[in-house]
Amino acid sequence: MDFALFANLAFNGLIEGAVIALPAVALTLVFGVMGFPNASTGDVMTAGAYAAQTGQIAMAGSIVAGVIVGSVASALLALVFYLCVFRFFQGRPSMYALVASIGLAFATRSTLTFFLGYDQRVFPIPLTRAFSFGPLRIVPSDLYILATSVGAIVLVFLLLYVTPLGRRMRAVADNPDLARSCGISSHRVLSAMWLIAGAVTGLGGILFGIKTVITPLMGWEALLPAFAAMILGGIGNPAGAIAGALTIGIAQELSTPFVGFTYKIGVGFAIMVLALVLRPSGLFNLSARVR
């Protein structure tokens, strides 16, 4: 066994997990409050990545400006999806909203490919030399990706658990009618929730694009591990979604010497299935649900 190889795979898995954690948190937020698995999450990731890359080029190559443009664009796209589609399915069977979200996913992807084509794109960022840290070979951009993801997740948690808006969001998630009788406008709260979920999703797409390349299918492919992370962590549990994403990211990478790169995604799903057989409410759901 080559310790350095596995240490590097585990670190790479940590970075992948940190990226997948963002759409997983968005999925679990939407599921916790709206009660349906939002299949358009992956394509909002893609749209965010394309918007960020376009924004970066337009803003003289500033990656920070690109990240801001991409996050804002995906936040607005998610809000438009809510205002134009998802809000009409509130109080109705979740299957309706799920099917609508699949339709929005295809529509988003088709629109992107119609205008931008199928060619791969990359973020024009300078290549940097990897440095050694013990057995690890670390590329600086991975550290930026990790720091950005952690920062975004900390912000989301602060917003959810420290601010009055987060309190209102969790109240609406718990009991929408009781929240209304408490004077809370669920429409405003849900609009804010969709903006946050969209921004976080878009940021996930941007980081995924920086780590790999931007393609029209990148979000769709990232959606499955994000779903697995949400389910593994316990649906509606943001902290669980993060733990689920890190578990899946690291397990997938560690499995590549045995199953190969192509089949690593199957390992993530095998872990999810095994965990759910042993603990159906999700591996990280300590109580019923932590919103």
Binding site: P164, R168, R170, A171, A173, A179, C182, R289
Partner: peptide, 12 residues
């Protein structure tokens, strides 16, 4: 609101 603390229930 079961997932909120007692104080959050009052403040919400």
């Amino acid at each position: 609101f079961p997932s909120l603390s007692v104080e959050e229930n009052l403040l919400v």
